[in-house]
Nucleic acid binder design. Sequence first.
RNA 1: GGCAGGAUAGCUCAGCUGGUUAGAGCGGCGGCUUCAUAAGCCGUAGGUCGCCGGUUCAAGUCCGGCUCCUGCUACCA
Length: 693
Amino acid sequence: MTRQILVTSALPYANGPIHLGHLVEYIQTDIFVRFQRLRGHQVAYLCADDTHGTAIMIRAQKEGRSPEQLIAETAVAHQRDFAAFGVSFDHYGSTNSPANYEVCTGIWRDLRAANLVVERSVERLYDPVQKTFLADRFVVGECPRCTTKDQYGDSCEACGATYTATELKNPRSVHSGAPPELRLSQQLFVKLTPLQTFLTEWTQRSGALQTEIANYLAGHFLDKPLQDWDVSRPAPYFGFAIPDAKDQFWYVWFDAPIGYIASTQEWCARTGQSLDHWWKNPQCEIVHFLGKDITYFHTLFWPALLHVGGYQLPKRVQIHGFLRVGGEKMSKSKGTFVTAARYLEHLDPEWLRYYYASKLSSKIDDLDFQPDEFVGKVNSDLVGRVVNLASRAARFVESSGLSARYPDDGGLFATAASLRETLATAYEACDFREATRLVMTLADAANEYVESKAPWTLKKDPARSAELQDVCTVVLNLFHQIIVYLQPVLPQLAAKAGALLGSPCDRWELVTTPLVGTRIAKFEHLMTRVEVAKVQAMFVPESATGTTPLPAPTTPPIAAAVLSSSDTLSSDTLSSDTLSREPLAAEISIDDFQKIDLRIAKVIAAEAVPDAKKLLRLTLSLGSGPTRNVFAGIKGAYEPDQLVGRLVVMVANLAPRKMKFGMSEGMVIAAGTDGHVFLLSPDVGAEPGHRLH
RNA sequence: GGCAGGAUAGCUCAGCUGGUUAGAGCGGCGGCUUCAUAAGCCGUAGGUCGCCGGUUCAAGUCCGGCUCCUGCUACCA
C-alpha cells in the first residue's frame, strides 16, 4: 500500500548560518524521506526559514539594513548549504510569507471563535534606547544575591539564585546598554486549560511521542493546569501584526510552526495540489523532526493550534539530541563550532551523512562527533568494505559484462534480499545505526566471498574466464543490493554506482532481482578516502585569525601532538617575547598530564633522512624492549653523530605516525623553533626507561 | 532549584517482559593474502555491567538509597 507522508524538519532561525549541529537534524530527516521515497511512498518534505522575532530585528538594525534584507540573504545561504548536503526538500519557504500570514490568520480566527484568546495586562522590561520590550535574557546585571557581574535576567550562573530581571543590580539592556524600564503592555494569551484533556490524551496515548518525551510532559506540565500562553509581543517587533489587536504582533513561536503548513501551501500552489489533501486528510501521516530544545513548543502548543484549526495532528514527532564535538559542546573559540560552509571547504558531504547515520538511533541521546571515529567509519566502512567491492570486481568484467544468468552464489543474494524487511523496520524507526550496521554485515559477507573465490587467480587461467565472470557477477550484484540499501544515506554514491552498473539504484525492491547480462562501465573511484589532517584542518578556532591567543586544541591528543611536532618546528623565527608568541595553553588536570608518558631514551643511532629537509631518523632505546624509530625535525640544529649515545626525553606512548619516510614511533621533546632547537637532557643518573613525573 | 535521561570491553553502543560461560562494530595484538583507493580474510585478547543494600532458586535486567555525567527549564514550572 502506498502511504502518503508529510515530513518536516524544524525551521532554522534566519539569524545565523547552518552548522554541523543543524545538519544532524536535516540529514536524519532526509534519510527518512529518501527511504520512504525509495519504498515508493508519496512524500512531501517541507521546511522554511524561521524569520521573525526580536533577535533578527535587532541584528538587522545593528547592521543598518532591513530585516527583510537580512532574511533574504540568509535564505540563500541556508538553501545553498542544504543543497550541498543533499537535503531534498520538496519546498523551502519562509515564515515571512503571504501564505504564512494567511494560515496564521485562519488559525487565529479559529482560536477566537473557540473563545480561547484572552487579553491581560503584563509588566515588561523596556529598552528606552532601542524602543523595544526585552526578554529576560536580553537584560544583564549583577546578581542580587552574590553580586557576580554580567548575569542574565533570570538566574545567576555563579550562585544559582533565581530572580526576576527587575531584581538585578545595575540592570542594562544587552542591546543598548541602557537601564531598562518597566512598562505595562496589553498582551494576548491563548488559554490551554480547555485543551488539557485533549493534550493529555494525545501526548500519552497517541503513540506519536517517544516515551521519554511523554514522561517529561506528563510530569512537568500536564500534572497541573496548563498556563495560558502569551502569544503576542508589543510593537516594535519584526513579525506579523495581529489583525484584531492594536500594536500587537504574533510571538515568533506562534507563526514559526505554522510555517510548516504555509510552506506546504506554497508547494501545493506550485504543483497544483490541494492543501487539505495533506493537512486535513486522515490518510496522510505527518511526521515532524526536531531537536529536544524545542520539544515543548511542538508537543503542547503546536498540537493545540492544529487541533483548534481543524488540521491533522502529527502521527509522529521524532526528537533528537544535540551534536557535541570531542565530548564537549560546540564552541566557537575552540573551533568546534563548524558551519556547513566550512565543512564543505574540507570534506565530502556524503561522509558526514554516513557518519551521522552510523551513530543515529531513535533515542534522544546527544551525538558526539569524534574525528578519529569519523575517519575510521568513512575509510573502513565505506571505502574499505563497500566501495572496495566494486573496485575488486568491476575491472575484471569491463569487457565481458555480467553473466547472462545469475550463478549459484551459495544463497548470498537471497540472504541479503531477505534482510530487506528487517532493514526497512530499522529505517522506519530512524534507527539508522542499526540499518548501517546490518548493511555492513552484508559487505563483510561479500568480501569473504571474494576472498574464497580469489578472482585474481581465476584471471590467470583463460580456461576459467566464465567462472571469473560468474564470480564478478555475484560480487557486483551483492554490491548493488548494498548500494540500494544505503541509497537513503548516500544518494550520490548510489547515483555513481548506478552509472557503473548501468542500472539505477532507486527502488527498494531492486534488491530482489539480480542484474544479469548487462554491461559494466569503466571503473572509476566512487569515493575517496579521508585523511585525519583534513578533519583537523576543519576545526579552526575563531580566534586563530585574530590576535587573541590560541586556546588549547580540543582535537584528540594524538592528532594535536602530531601536529605540534611539525608546527612548532616550522613556525616563524624566534621572537624576543616567547611567552606572548606562544601563549600558555589551557589548564589541564593531573589526569590529562598522566596520559602523556614521558621517558628517558638513549639515542642508539642517528642519521639524516635523504630528501627530507628537516628530519633526522633516530633509533631510541628505552633500556629494554624493542627500540623505537623516531623522526625528529632537528636536522638543522644537530649533527647525527653528536647525538649518538646521548639521552633525550621522548613521548613514549604517542600513537605511531606514518610519515613519508616510514613509521615514527614517538616524539622527541625539544624547545625552541625552527633553526633554534634545543633537545632536553636529564641530569646524571637518569637511565633509559625512567618515566618523568 | 525543578524535571527528563544516562552510567555495560580502550571507543561507540546492543542486551526484549529477570534464566545457561554478558554481545556487536571500531580500535589493539598475532597470522594469511595481494584483485582492490596500504583495501581484504582468519584468529585472539579485553568487562566485579557506576557504588551500597534489598527482593528472588536466579539480577546488567526488579526495588530503595548514594555518586557522577548530560540535557531542558516559556515572561521558570
